[in-house]
C-alpha cells in the first residue's frame, strides 16, 4: 500500500486565497498515522503536489491540508481551488515525514511565514499532547493569516503574531538570543524569510543541527527524464518512461534483476553499464565507482543522456 484514495469531505476558504480540504477514507476507516510536520503528495489534475498536513496525526480518521492558490504556478493549486469539489476522490501517496520535531529538544522555537504555518500547526498539536515547551512567531500579511485561530488556541494565546516585517525581524533577533540550552528552531515560509531566520540564528551562535527548515519548491518527487536502455545480450531496446524506474522497466520486459530494498541502499540490483552515462541517485556505490560509470543501481538510478547500454 503506497497510495491512498481519499474522499474530499469538506472544503472551506478560511482566508482569501487559501482553500482548506478535509480528506477521509471513502469507507470511513482510520487513515495511516503521520509524524508532525509530514506532507501529503496529492495528484492534482495531472500533477503531484505536496501539502503539509495540519491535522492531528495520531490514529487519524481524516486529514486536513491548506492550499494557497499560486496563480502563476504549475497549475496544481489552481486545480484544487477551481476544479476539485466536495464528494470527489483524489489519489495521494502515504504521508511523508521530512520536518519532524526533535524529541530531545528542551524547547521548540517555531517560526512561520504565511502559508508556511501549516506544518507548524501540526507540530503544535503534538506539542500539546506531549506537553512540550514551545514559543511561536508567526508573520503574515494583514488579513491573510491562515490558521491564526488554531495557532492561538494551541498555544493558549501565547503565540506572537506579526504583520510588520521590521517589527518581526527585531523581535526574532531578541528571541533567538535568549533561548535555553537545548532549544531547537523550526522555520517554514518563503525562501527569503527562511534564509533570514537561519542566518540570524547562525550569527547568534546556533549550531546547524539545532536548525530545521522546510522550503517550498517545485516538485516533491523527481520522476526523472525518460530514456532508452538497450540490452546487448538480446539486442532489444526498452523504453524507461519518466516516473518508472529502470528496474521496473527491466522486470516488465522479462529481465530478472536480483533486488531487495528498491531504495538504492542494499546493493543487490547493481547492473553493469556497457555504454552511456549513468545518472547515479543511490547510496550504495562509492564516489569512485560512480565516477567510473561502469555500473549502476537499477532501482533508483537513471541515464544522464537519451540512452544506456547494459550487457544483459
Amino acid at each position: 500500500m503506497t497510495t491512498l484514495e481519499l474522499l474530499v469531505t469538506a472544503a472551506v476558504h478560511p482566508v482569501p486565497g487559501i482553500r482548506s480540504l478535509t480528506l477521509a477514507a471513502p469507507d470511513g476507516r482510520d487513515l495511516p498515522g503521520f509524524v508532525p510536520g509530514s506532507h501529503l503528495v496529492i495528484e492534482c489534475g495531472g500533477r503531484s503536489n505536496a501539502y503539509s498536513l495540519t491535522s492531528d496525526g495520531t490514529a487519524p480518521t481524516s486529514y486536513t491540508v491548506s492550499v494557497l492558490e499560486v496563480p502563476d504556478g504549475s497549475g496544481g493549486s489552481r486545480w484544487v481551488h477551481r476544479e476539485l469539489r466536495v464528494g470527489e476522490v483524489v489519489t495521494a501517496r502515504l504521508p511523508r515525514s521530512l520536518f519532524p520535531p526533535v524529541a530531545r529538544a528542551a524547547k521548540h522555537l517555531l517560526v512561520a511565514g504565511g502559508i508556511g504555518v501549516t506544518p507548524i500547526v501540526s507540530h503544535l498539536r503534538a506539542a500539546r499532547t506531549w506537553r512540550r515547551e514551545t514559543e511561536v512567531h508567526y508573520v503574515f500579511r494583514e488579513g491573510r493569516g491562515a490558521h491564526v485561530d488554531d495557532v492561538l488556541a494551541l498555544t493558549d494565546g501565547a503565540a506572537e503574531l506579526h504583520t510588520d516585517r521590521a517589527e518581526f525581524c527585531a523581535r526574532l533577533e531578541k528571541a533567538l538570543a535568549d533561548q535555553p540550552l537545548g532549544t531547537h528552531l523550526y522555520v517554514c515560509g518563503p525562501a527569503a524569510m527562511i534564509d533570514h531566520v537561519l542566518d540570524t540564528a547562525r550569527g547568534l551562535g546556533w549550531p546547524e543541527s539545532r536548525l530545521h527548515c522546510e522550503r517550498f519548491g517545485l516538485d516533491a518527487l523527481d520522476p526523472g527524464d525518460p530514456f532508452d536502455v538497450t540490452l546487448t545480450a538480446t539486442g532489444t531496446t526498452v523504453r524507461v518512461p519518466s516516473g518508472t524506474s529502470l528496474l521496473e522497466a527491466l522486470e516488465t520486459s522479462g529481465v530478472d534483476v536480483p533486488n531487495l530494498c528498491r531504495q538504492g541502499v542494499c546493493g543487490e540490483c547493481r547492473i553493469p553499464v556497457a555504454a552511456g552515462t549513468p545518472l547515479h541517485r543511490d547510496l550504495f556505490l562509492t564516489e569512485e565507482e560512480k565516477a567510473a560509470g561502469d555500473a549502476l543501481m537499477a532501482c533508483v538510478s537513471r541515464s544522464a543522456g537519451p540512452s544506456l547500454e547494459v550487457p544483459l
Binding site: V35, P95, S97, V265, L283, F284
Partner: peptide, 12 residues
C-alpha cells in the same frame, strides 16, 4: 549505508 537507509525510512 544502513544508517543512511534508516534515516530515510518512512512510516507504514
Amino acid at each position: 549505508r544502513a544508517h543512511e537507509f534508516l534515516k530515510r525510512l518512512q512510516p507504514h
